[in-house]
C-alpha cells in the first residue's frame, strides 16, 4: 500500500467514524433513577435465595435441626423487616 493510498484509507476511516459518532439520533436508551424500593426488591430476592439455600443444606444433612431452626429464624426476621419496609414504601 502506497502512502497516498494509506492516507485515503485513513481519511475514509476518519469520515466513517465521525459520521457514525455524530449521526443525529432521537431515540436514546435511558432509565429511571433507581430507588430504594428497587434496591429492597433486589435484596428480597437475595434473602429468599439465602432461605432456599439454608433449607436445601438442611435437607442435605449439613445442619443439625436446632442450628437450622436458629438460622432460619434469623433469616426470616431479616426478611420480615425488609418486607415491612417494602410494604411501607409501596403504600407511600
Amino acid at each position: 500500500m502506497t502512502p497516498t493510498l494509506g492516507l485515503i484509507c485513513g481519511a475514509l476511516l476518519l469520515i466513517g467514524t465521525f459520521v457514525y459518532t455524530f449521526w443525529p439520533e432521537n431515540v436514546f436508551a435511558s432509565q429511571r433513577v433507581k430507588t430504594r424500593l428497587d434496591y429492597l426488591l433486589e435484596r428480597k430476592e437475595q434473602l429468599y435465595e439465602n432461605l432456599r439455600d439454608l433449607s436445601f443444606e438442611h435437607r442435605a444433612g449439613k445442619y443439625p435441626e436446632e442450628d437450622f431452626l436458629n438460622q432460619r429464624a434469623l433469616l426470616e426476621n431479616e426478611t420480615a423487616q425488609l418486607l415491612a419496609e417494602i410494604e411501607t414504601l409501596q403504600q407511600a
Binding site: D53, F56, A80
Partner: peptide, 20 residues
C-alpha cells in the same frame, strides 16, 4: 412464587425448589 408473610409471621420460601 413466594408468599409474602406479615412482619411477625414466619417466611415460607420455595423450599421444594431444590438446590439454591
Amino acid at each position: 412464587a413466594l408468599r409474602v408473610p406479615a412482619r411477625s409471621a414466619p417466611v415460607e420460601p420455595a423450599l421444594t425448589g431444590g438446590a439454591q
